[in-house]
Computed example of a mutant assay.
Amino acid sequence: MEPTALAYLGAGLGAGLVALGAGLGIGRLAGPAMEGSARQPEAAGDIRTSMIIAAALIEGVALFGLVICVLLAIK
């Protein structure tokens, strides 16, 4: 295989893994947060705020991963 084909393959696999990891991370975050909100409705605001901050951090890491994959494909 050509080096560019390997770079495209690596970038595609990397982008897929980043998207999968971000989806799993947010899913593992949101499930317990919803359960906690259902068990203690008075704490729902604090739980929601923490969940949104953590989800934003996960998405930020995923975005960096995707940028790295795109940079691999460009070279």
Rank of each mutant, 00 (worst) to 15 (best):
L24M: 12
G21T: 10
I58C: 05
A44K: 09
M51D: 00
E2H: 07
V67W: 12
R48S: 14
S50F: 09
A73F: 00
I53G: 11
Y8E: 07
A38C: 01
A33V: 09
L6C: 00
R48Q: 14
V18D: 09
S50W: 07
A43W: 15
E42S: 10
A30H: 03
P32A: 13
R39W: 05
A55Y: 03
A54N: 09
L71P: 07
L72Q: 13
G12W: 08
G36K: 09
G60E: 01
I68M: 10
A19T: 03
Q40Y: 02
A44L: 00
L9A: 09
L13V: 06
A15Y: 02
A44E: 02
G60H: 02
G45W: 09
L29V: 11
L57Y: 08
E42M: 11
V61Q: 06
I52K: 03
G27N: 05
C69F: 04
E2F: 04
L9I: 09
I74G: 13
A56M: 11
L13D: 00
L66A: 13
L17K: 05
L66P: 03
I68Q: 03
Y8I: 09
V70K: 12
A30M: 13
A19H: 02
I52M: 11
G45T: 14
Q40W: 06
L57E: 13
I52E: 03
L9C: 09
A33G: 10
V18I: 14
G21S: 07
V70D: 14
E42P: 05
I52C: 04
G27M: 03
E59T: 00
I58M: 08
D46E: 06
E2K: 10
I68C: 03
I47L: 13
D46S: 08
G60T: 14
A19Y: 02
A56F: 11
V18L: 08
R39L: 00
Q40M: 07
L6V: 00
A15K: 04
I58L: 12
E59R: 01
A19F: 02
A19I: 05
M34A: 04
S50V: 04
I68D: 04
L13G: 03
M1Y: 01
I52F: 11
I26R: 02
G23S: 11
L17E: 03
E2I: 06
G25T: 12
I74M: 15
L17S: 08
A43G: 07
G60N: 04
L72M: 14
G25M: 14
A15S: 12
L72E: 14
I52T: 07
F64R: 05
M51P: 00
L24V: 15
A15G: 06
I68A: 10
A11L: 08
A56G: 09
I74F: 14
V67T: 12
R28D: 05
G14E: 06
T49G: 13
A33M: 05
A19V: 10
G25Q: 09
L13W: 01
L66E: 04
A30F: 12
G14C: 04
V18G: 06
E59P: 01
T49M: 15
P32I: 06
G65K: 09
L29G: 12
